[in-house]
Nucleic acid binder design. Sequence first.
DNA 1: CAGACGTGGCT
DNA 2: TAGCCAAGTCT
Length: 346
Amino acid sequence: MSVDMPVSQRLLDWYDDHARTLPWRTPPGAAERPDPYRVWLSEIMLQQTTVAAVGPYFARFVGRWPMVTDLAAADEAELMAAWAGLGYYARARNLIACAREVTRLGGFPSTEEGLRALPGIGAYTAAAVAAIAFGERAVVVDANVERVVSRLFAIAEPLPGSRPRIRALADTITPDARAGDFAQAMMDLGATVCTPRNPRCYACPLTSACAAYAEGNPETYPVKPAKKAKPRRRGIAYWLESESAVLLVRRPDKGMLGGMRALPGGDWGETPEAAPPIPACWRHVGTVEHVFTHFALSLDVMAAELPARPIEGEWWPIDLIEQAGLPTLYARAAALGRASSEMLAL
DNA sequence: CAGACGTGGCT
DNA sequence: TAGCCAAGTCT
């Protein structure tokens, strides 16, 4: 392989042999383009989320809602429950809004600009869908591309200040043809070779063009600012059981776990303080330690059993609690409450 | 613009 | 193991 072959060509050649096989992809250089609906759905799911985590969710979603028009007609609560566990729940709320808008438009826009106007679609996703699903030349910059470009050009300026330069440099190496394959090739390279730690430079098709490799310190790029310390908050969740069912609530659309089902309980803060939904003999059955992006939470779980469903609300059969679509935090809290009441019944 | 917004896997 | 990190978007 010639060293003066353009970076884009070397990368595309590498991709032809090393592309990952993924459910939402067509093979490299395939004649037919992938379904825009599947490309869009996968891109939304993959935002800040690993391929491994997305796999089963993607399969369930396309099985249940095979076309964007099906998703547009979905029951919102069912969709939120199907998303439970994937995180960043604003994505699920935007997903259904976007599906409805696309259905109203009669299909996905094929341009970056048109895609960018849809809910939940930002600069990255608009470029990715335009390139992958519609073959448009678009400069696709995600965290993988930022890392690969930072290393190729040994960019010393830390993120996020270096973003404009990274984008400009990515533009210079993006080819006119096969822009979608090129974008996916950059992401595959970042995910499997040009990794954040212990990059496998010996397997990289671009080492001869890589400034960081020449310096001998690829792992030092991209330069990032120091992380801030996470504060710790406390909260309480109430497992109220009656007639083999448990009382669930729906969290407000704004804020943490917005729109998701949850156990009753007050706000989270410095001290755990929340009035129980009803006076009862509440037992402390455990504490869930959960780390979010910007704080850590200690959630104390209280449990009680009462006869004859004492208050109005959504009473969910405990045997079917897995289907309630609780986000992970509350799924863990529910496991504690359920185990405690089963223990008590023995 | 910097902070809010989840979760699980890897080192 | 505690921290880092993942195909970002919205405000």
